[in-house]
Simulated assay, not measured.
Amino acid sequence: MKPIIKSKPNYKKIFCDIITLKHPDKLEYCREILAKDEILLFDVILLNKIIFGNGEKDTEFFNQQHKSYDEATINTILNYQKKHHLNNSEVSRHFKLSRNTIARWRKLFP
């Protein structure tokens, strides 16, 4: 049996193609994020909001329940919390996460 190799999608290429083909007017708003060497999952969420808007409440709620975060994104969120001296509730509102999730991450990634 061959081992399964997991690779990350090339988000930079995907979003550049979407912007070039369908939304060239949004390029200026996304330029800073797309200039990064590595696009984190947090950046993907932000790019989606910039390009496609917020969408409906039901869709946003459904998508929120199915998000997953890699370690780099979690560290970015926790660093944001430290930098801005926010408590778990404030961070959870800002990133639309459960405050219990933030608390669990703080225990796992001190």
Rank of each mutant, 00 (worst) to 15 (best):
R31Q: 14
K67F: 06
L21K: 12
H85R: 08
L27A: 12
F109I: 05
Q65M: 00
L41P: 07
K8V: 13
Y80C: 14
G53K: 00
F42E: 11
I45F: 08
C30V: 09
V91L: 07
L78E: 05
I77C: 03
K13D: 10
N54P: 02
F62N: 03
F109W: 13
I18N: 10
N100S: 13
Y69L: 12
I51R: 06
S7F: 10
P3I: 03
W105G: 00
I4L: 14
I51K: 05
E56C: 04
K57W: 08
L97H: 07
Y11E: 05
D17T: 15
N87I: 09
K6C: 03
I50T: 09
E60I: 00
S68A: 09
C16F: 10
I5W: 06
E90C: 02
L46M: 14
K36Y: 05
E60Q: 01
I77Y: 04
Q64D: 06
E60T: 02
R99T: 15
D58N: 00
E38H: 03
S7R: 12
D25A: 14
S89P: 01
E60M: 01
S68E: 08
K96M: 10
E60D: 05
I14S: 14
N10Q: 11
D25K: 12
N87W: 04
D58A: 03
I74K: 12
L47S: 09
R106V: 12
I5N: 14
E56Y: 03
I33D: 05
D43Q: 08
E28M: 05
K13H: 07
A103V: 04
W105Y: 00
K57D: 09
A35H: 02
T20V: 13
I39E: 09
A72N: 08
F42S: 14
K36W: 15
R106D: 05
T73P: 11
C16H: 06
F52W: 03
K67M: 07
E28Y: 07
E56F: 04
H85K: 10
A72E: 07
I45E: 12
Y69C: 14
I18A: 08
L108Y: 01
F15S: 12
P24S: 10
N87H: 01
C30L: 07
K22C: 10
I102P: 02
S68N: 02
K36M: 09
I4C: 05
H94E: 00
D70N: 07
K49I: 10
T59C: 00
V91E: 03
L34Q: 02
T20S: 15
T73K: 10
C30K: 00
L27R: 13
K107A: 05
K22I: 13
W105Q: 05
L97T: 05
I33A: 09
T76S: 06
V91M: 01
I102D: 01
K12Q: 14
P24F: 07
N100Y: 12
L46S: 14
T73S: 15
I18K: 15
T73E: 12
I5F: 10
L78N: 07
I74M: 08
E32G: 10
L40E: 01
N63P: 02
I5S: 03
P110W: 04
